[in-house]
Every structure is written in structure tokens, then in C-alpha cells.
Amino acid sequence: MIAYIKGTLINIHEDAVIVDVQGVGYEVFCASPFAFQASLDDKVTIHTYHYVREDTQVLYGFRDEDEKLLFTKLISVSGIGPKGALAILAGVDTQGFIEAIEREDDKFLTSFPGIGKKTARQIILDLKGKLSAIAAIPVQSAGDTPSREISRELQEAREALKSLGYTEREIKTITPELQNVGNTNTDEIVRKALALLMKN
């Protein structure tokens, strides 16, 4: 299996990137291809999942191992294929999605395209308690105080930071402070985040 691709990023499409590895162009399908925009024409390492079926072979690419692991867990859930998993990854940060599973937030899960009530319950049934190692959050037990919910504005701000080249781990370190900003819009959260990241 192909675990990663290391080469020159030569093109970015709406749903995939093209990486040149010693003269061979690999098409790698991604949840957010333009997250790699800053690396265009530069050397990149993209974590990959080699999806093999009788009638197809596809490379799916990810920014880090956490995103790749969440993808593999999602496609193990009945009713979710690779395209559905990518659609989920494109619309949420890893930690926010895992927290939604841990608190059994059906409403949040059904906000993604193709995820109905039945599939949302299946995601919770199959994955609750099995993803805490990906994001730095504890698995809740009976009587625990629920995790603080990440607002949609904060989720959008986190995705904007990723598109600017910041890593998942860098963003996680400032998320608690961003949650204390209060009711505000995405742009203000991004400005606050950039100020915090420049201090670190």
C-alpha cells in the first residue's frame, strides 16, 4: 500500500492535487486541495490512503496522520464511502468532529451532505470512544462535564487557518483561548488566532 507521496506539487484541481515523483505524476484526491496552495511548485509530503477495489484504484491524500486516521475510521462505518468521508473532512476540523461524536450530537453530524439520522447514529455507535487518541481530548464517562462546544464561527476560523498553512497541532494549542473570545464573527476569530500564533 502507498502510505505517503513525496515529490513536487505541480498542480491543484478542485478535488485533487498532482504530485510529480521522479517524472511520474500522481493524482491524489483530497478533502481540501487548496490547503496545499502555499506549497505549489515546492516539495511536499502528503499522507495517503490507497483505496483498492476490483474496478478502481484511488489515492486519497491528507495533511496529517490524524486526518488520515479519521478518514479510515469513517469509511469503516456502514453507509459512508470515500467520497462521503472526504466531504465530512472538508467541512469540519478533526477535533470538533470527534467531540460531536463523543457527546452524541446527532444534529451536528446530520449537517453534513449525505449523513442522515440513521448514518449519524451508526457513526456514534461505531466510533464513540475510539477516536480520542487522534484529538487531544478525554473520552467522557458518565457524570463528566460535557466538552465545550466549538461554534460554527470557530470551526470556520480553524479551517481558514489551515488554508493559511498552520498545522492541526498549532491550531489546537490556541483553541481554548479562542473559545474565550465570546460571540463574534469568523474574521475576528481569525485575527485573534493570528495574533496568538505570532506570539508562540
Rank of each mutant, 00 (worst) to 15 (best):
residue 1 M to Q: 12
residue 2 I to C: 15
residue 3 A to R: 14
residue 3 A to V: 10
residue 3 A to L: 15
residue 4 Y to T: 04
residue 4 Y to I: 03
residue 6 K to Q: 10
residue 9 L to D: 01
residue 9 L to N: 01
residue 11 N to Y: 13
residue 11 N to A: 12
residue 12 I to M: 02
residue 15 D to M: 07
residue 17 V to A: 08
residue 19 V to L: 15
residue 19 V to N: 02
residue 20 D to V: 08
residue 21 V to K: 05
residue 21 V to I: 06
residue 22 Q to G: 10
residue 23 G to A: 13
residue 25 G to C: 11
residue 25 G to H: 14
residue 26 Y to I: 00
residue 28 V to W: 14
residue 29 F to Y: 08
residue 31 A to N: 03
residue 32 S to Q: 08
residue 32 S to G: 05
residue 36 F to D: 02
residue 37 Q to G: 15
residue 39 S to V: 04
residue 40 L to F: 12
residue 41 D to E: 15
residue 41 D to W: 15
residue 42 D to N: 15
residue 43 K to D: 13
residue 44 V to F: 15
residue 44 V to G: 07
residue 44 V to W: 02
residue 46 I to L: 06
residue 46 I to F: 04
residue 47 H to Q: 03
residue 47 H to R: 04
residue 48 T to G: 08
residue 51 Y to T: 02
residue 52 V to F: 04
residue 52 V to A: 13
residue 58 V to N: 10
residue 61 G to P: 01
residue 62 F to P: 01
residue 65 E to P: 08
residue 68 K to G: 05
residue 69 L to M: 05
residue 70 L to V: 09
residue 71 F to A: 00
residue 72 T to H: 12
residue 73 K to C: 03
residue 73 K to D: 00
residue 75 I to P: 01
residue 75 I to K: 15
residue 76 S to L: 10
residue 77 V to K: 10
residue 78 S to A: 15
residue 79 G to D: 12
residue 81 G to Y: 02
residue 82 P to F: 04
residue 83 K to H: 09
residue 83 K to V: 12
residue 84 G to V: 11
residue 84 G to Y: 01
residue 85 A to R: 08
residue 86 L to K: 14
residue 86 L to S: 14
residue 88 I to V: 08
residue 88 I to C: 04
residue 92 V to G: 11
residue 92 V to N: 11
residue 95 Q to P: 04
residue 95 Q to R: 07
residue 96 G to E: 12
residue 97 F to Y: 06
residue 99 E to L: 09
residue 102 E to L: 12
residue 103 R to N: 06
residue 103 R to M: 11
residue 103 R to V: 15
residue 107 K to W: 05
residue 107 K to E: 10
residue 108 F to H: 01
residue 108 F to I: 11
residue 111 S to A: 14
residue 112 F to G: 00
residue 114 G to P: 09
residue 117 K to I: 11
residue 119 T to N: 02
residue 125 L to Y: 05
residue 128 K to L: 07
residue 128 K to D: 06
residue 130 K to L: 05
residue 132 S to P: 09
residue 137 I to F: 09
residue 138 P to N: 03
residue 139 V to Q: 05
residue 140 Q to K: 14
residue 141 S to T: 15
residue 142 A to P: 11
residue 142 A to D: 13
residue 143 G to S: 11
residue 144 D to W: 01
residue 144 D to I: 06
residue 148 R to C: 07
residue 149 E to I: 05
residue 151 S to N: 03
residue 152 R to V: 11
residue 156 E to Q: 05
residue 156 E to T: 08
residue 157 A to V: 04
residue 158 R to A: 07
residue 159 E to L: 11
residue 159 E to F: 09
residue 159 E to G: 04
residue 161 L to R: 08
residue 161 L to N: 06
residue 165 G to D: 11
residue 165 G to N: 13
residue 165 G to F: 12
residue 166 Y to K: 05
residue 170 E to D: 11
residue 171 I to L: 13
residue 172 K to E: 14
residue 174 I to M: 02
residue 175 T to S: 09
residue 175 T to L: 13
residue 176 P to K: 00
residue 176 P to F: 00
residue 177 E to C: 12
residue 179 Q to E: 10
residue 181 V to I: 09
residue 181 V to N: 02
residue 183 N to V: 03
residue 184 T to F: 00
residue 186 T to E: 06
residue 190 V to P: 02
residue 191 R to C: 01
residue 192 K to L: 09
residue 193 A to H: 05
residue 194 L to A: 03
residue 196 L to C: 01
residue 197 L to A: 06
residue 199 K to W: 10
residue 199 K to R: 09
residue 200 N to L: 13
residue 200 N to A: 13
